[in-house]
Design a protein around this nucleic acid. Structure first.
Lengths: 231, 231
DNA sequence: TGCATATCGAGAAACTTATATCGAGATGTT
DNA sequence: AACATCTCGATATAAGTTTCTCGATATGCA
């Protein structure tokens, strides 16, 4: 809002670009393992089958400056992206819901490498409370707000059944959480200031299902087999 | 004319609208349980905390026609959405990867109510093959293409580790799959004709992490990351 | 050294999606 | 029966995103 230079450009990056950065990030890491030391946007585009202009735009959005005819030093670009996304700074999180999805999330070791650490798990089911899942003891859901408050936890993950999601979100907000990552198939409402990210499978399923039916209904596709944006 | 209009409009619905339809759908079902018999776009918007204009636009996109001053008959609208999304027509699916995520997906009873039925599970791990998960016996991954071919399976779910995702996708394509729902944190490439839906947690995590850090305030460091360039 | 070329960076154009506005028609009320 | 009002549907405007184009510059090579 204040100015337009590189410092604040970070704040104006399109959501779509933001979501593509991990794709580049992973590809860069793979290249690093292969011993590559420099990379151009065109290299990325070729390797990933994406549009070169889009790749350049996305990278440019992060504020890093490359050199014409050279590209970017690979390791430096990786570090830049990590820093840009905040993946090199730990953020604590709590998880609500110790069912199969919650357990799977708890087991994701890699989250820690991406700046997120799940500090505690909560559930309302008496049978689950006290159990240990991936080394974390399941605590009563009622303890959540106080835990969040005491430890200044920033992020809350919701992996409960749909009908519990709103009340769990409310608990998190009560405790002073800053962002919610909602895996429950439910539309939840939170105060404006809370960052909310929905991971609703049924949103995707709707899109997928519709497209699939449309394709099936349409004339049974031209038999040319061409790879997307790959030429 | 009406139906022709509606049919063509079906093909032009924005992705964003498509992904919001399940939100309306669920809210409508809740209303139906409460005995409501008619609903207006404004009702939906109010109940969900969304913009009324957007709701109307989305509903309109599906081609249903409402009545001024009345809205839509609730049950009829629910049925219309189900039909529009194809949730009332069963589509068979296969799952690759019987780890924690794969198991969780297998356990989602509700998928069937949304038109998707997972018919078989495949894994490459000898220890898992033969085990039963949620009533399905895990089969060797190599059997996948033939299974897909024999049963004309439309949809493939990938819940493998990242490094296996591309080869599994290739297997599915070989078998003649029409759409892939990819849960592995990997960028996979498929022929143009294949519908691909990525459910990459790290895309979301990037967005969430960035927003969280931005909200927390001061960019940790700005200009000192300008790589000292040797000549 | 000087030229050809790959690559970045920025701005413009095209396209998509979201928001605002307005007219028409159905309903409920007086 | 007439009127006020609510709600849809369509059009217009704005905002956001992607794609295209072009100039500038560093590098590699002759």
């Amino acid at each position: 809002m204040q100015s337009d230079d590189a410092k604040t450009r970070r704040r104006e990056i399109p959501e779509a670009s933001l979501r593509r950065l991990p794709i580049y990030y992973r590809f860069l890491q793979k290249m690093a393992v292969d011993g590559v030391v420099r990379v151009s946007c065109a290299d990325l585009a070729r390797g990933l089958g994406l549009d070169p202009t889009q790749v350049r735009k996305d990278i440019e959005m992060t504020g890093i400056v490359g050199k014409p005819r050279f590209g970017y030093p690979l390791v430096h670009l990786i570090g830049w992206l990590e820093n840009f996304l905040g993946w090199n700074r730990a953020k604590s999180a709590v998880l609500a819901g110790a069912g199969s999805l919650g357990s799977a999330l708890l087991g994701y070791e890699k989250f820690r490498k991406h700046g997120m650490e799940i500090m505690a798990v909560f559930d309302i089911d008496g049978a689950k409370i006290g159990q240990r899942i991936h080394g974390k003891e399941v605590q009563p859901l009622g303890f959540l707000p106080d835990f969040v408050r005491r430890t200044h936890t920033l992020l809350g993950l919701i992996a409960t059944p749909a009908d519990a999601a709103q009340s769990v979100a409310d608990l998190m907000v009560t405790g002073g959480i800053r962002a919610i990552w909602n895996f429950a198939p439910a539309h939840i409402r939170v105060p404006e200031r809370i960052i909310l990210q929905n991971e609703d499978l049924y949103h995707s399923l709707a899109s997928l299902s519709f497209k699939l039916e449309r394709q099936l209904g349409a004339p049974p596709f031209e038999s040319e087999i061409s790879y997307a944006k790959d030429h």
